[in-house]
Amino acid sequence: MSVQVLSGQLLLGLINGAFYALLSLGLAVIFGVLGIINFAHGAFYMVGAFAAWGLATYLDIGYWPALVLVPLALGLAGMGVERLMLKRLAGLDPLYGLLATFGLALVLEGTFRQVYGSSGQPYPVPEALQGGVNLGFMFLPLYRGWVVAASIVVCLATWLAIERTALGARLRAATERPDMAQALGLNVPLLVTVTFGVAVALAAFAGVMAAPVYQANPLMGSNLIIVVFAVVVIGGMGSLSGAILSGYGLGLAEGLTKVFYPPAANIVVFVIMALVLLVRPAGLFGRVN
């Protein structure tokens, strides 16, 4: 096998991994403060891709502004979802949060399917990132390199903001013991709402970045979110770095599988999940829940 094929598939794997990492990071952050799994996270990613496509198609607003505007707008919408829907489920079995966000995912996906059908809407690669460079051992399309680099930077920045800043310390305190954090004067309800919004914004950011790679497709979210669930089961949600690393790692594993045994590529993450459950039920980075 040639180096080109191997490195090409590994790059594709890293791109998948970039989206897994952004989404599983968001899921882990939401799980930390709300104790629920946001099934609609994939739908927000899909809406992010469509929003970028819509801005370009109807308003002639290009990729770079969309990369800022779409996460902002969807982040605000996410805060609305938290206030209107999830807040009412506080104190109930967290399974209700999963079911409510599942319903929201169906609503979003069903609506977009009704309007746009099941086929994708093509979205162009931004001009500045068209073409590619020859690295000697492989040809690197610029846009793909950008997706991997941008997602690593965003994941790292999010991790640093949570683990190393004063605001992040508040978030960690609210994650660990919300009642105590609030008794010390922190506005925990507001913190939870904003955190949910930021996590949704991460999903929307991933969606905008995905549009030129996968097109905007109503089904892209649910296909992705189930794999991300497996990623989260593998990594455990106790550690944010674990969520990020599992995302990239499993993307790479998928890429490698495509090289060596293509038919298993779309189940390899689930197979790894089954193996992890057998060997280390708490997940690779997780504490026993």
């Binding site: 995912a105 169906l106 609503v107 979003l108 996906e109 069903g110 009704q114």
Partner: peptide, 16 residues
């Protein structure tokens, strides 16, 4: 009407 979307709305209403 989009059936999955209506089902999703029923879902949300039931849970809430």
């Amino acid at each position: 009407l989009p059936v999955p979307a209506v089902i999703g709305a029923v879902f949300i209403a039931c849970v809430l």
